[in-house]
Amino acid sequence: MVRLNKIKRQDGRIFLITGANSGLGYETSKALLEKGATVIMCCRDLLKGEKAKQELLKFNFSGKIELVELDLSDLNNVKKFSEFIKQNFNYLDVLINNAGIMAPPKTFSKQGLEIQFAVNHLAHMFLTLELLPILEEKNNSRVVTVTSGVQYFGVIKWDDLQGNLKYDRWASYAQSKLANVMFGLELNSKLKESNSKTSSLLAHPGFARTNLQPKSVEANQSWQEEIAYKLMDPMFQSAKMGALPQLTASTLPSAKGGEQYGPRFNFRGFPKICRNAPKALNKTTRKKLWEISKKLININ
């Protein structure tokens, strides 16, 4: 089990975190800054990002903060962002694909794709592939993709990936989180084949209290969902505890590619290696999703 005080110093190391201004991303940034890392905080809303940055600066941590705007709902923006990072940083030690959208009403990305599949899976895949060259500048660099416990219930709807025939917001969320695991494992397989210096790991926070829950209630105007969260509240752990699995996957020297870290009891507790969703273990379907995703993000 890994606790915050067990994480080693990270001086000289650069971490890029998506969705860094709140919840798991904020707590991950805070922990890494305390350990002396340089943290590139990526935020869709720069005003909220600046507010989070100022809060973190009050702690006088030894680490450095770089705040950069990133809109994962627009692949063109992801491309521009990636070019900016490659021009301004010679290397990355760890990319943490943390940002996520949970169960909104049917919404589309700038490219007309279902928003959860687009942001949670496709944009992070695109970002990762764009940044691999500077990740590979460092030995033992890592890509950590943050999924969710709903990965175990997710189903890839091959004939309706975008929910055009039938949209169920929770099924689409679970699909995107299963896609995260399939991507993370397939990426690690490809990195191994090419003898890359980089490895791909996964993490999930269990039941963590973040802004995803109130945002979902607000977006859907669902009093039933609000009551459900209130009833479940005692089961939720803090965002600080929820961030520990991704911190472990990012910093634990013994962590290996293909591993997933999650809470000890799967919904709460200190992190340990946990099982990947069984549906993500099929190499054929992983390759199929990879090829479909490549076409959707329009890369060779």
Score class of each variant (00 low, 15 high):
R9N: 15
N21F: 00
Y26A: 00
T28C: 09
K30P: 04
A31I: 05
L32D: 06
A37I: 10
G49Y: 00
L57N: 08
E66M: 13
D74A: 05
L75S: 03
S82M: 07
N97C: 09
N98M: 04
P105F: 08
K106W: 10
F108G: 07
S109G: 03
S109C: 09
Q111L: 09
G112L: 06
G112K: 10
F117K: 01
H121C: 04
A123G: 03
T128S: 13
T128H: 10
E130V: 08
P133I: 04
I134H: 01
K138V: 12
N139H: 15
S148N: 03
G149H: 07
K157Y: 15
K157T: 15
D160I: 05
L161G: 03
K166W: 15
W170I: 12
W170L: 09
A174S: 11
L178T: 07
G184S: 13
K190I: 13
E193S: 14
N195Y: 13
L212G: 03
A219P: 07
S222L: 09
Y229E: 08
M235Q: 12
F236M: 08
Q237K: 07
K240Q: 14
M241N: 09
A243D: 02
A243T: 06
T251M: 05
L252C: 11
G258L: 10
R264F: 14
R264N: 13
R275I: 13
L281E: 10
K283G: 12
L289T: 04
I297M: 10
N300F: 13
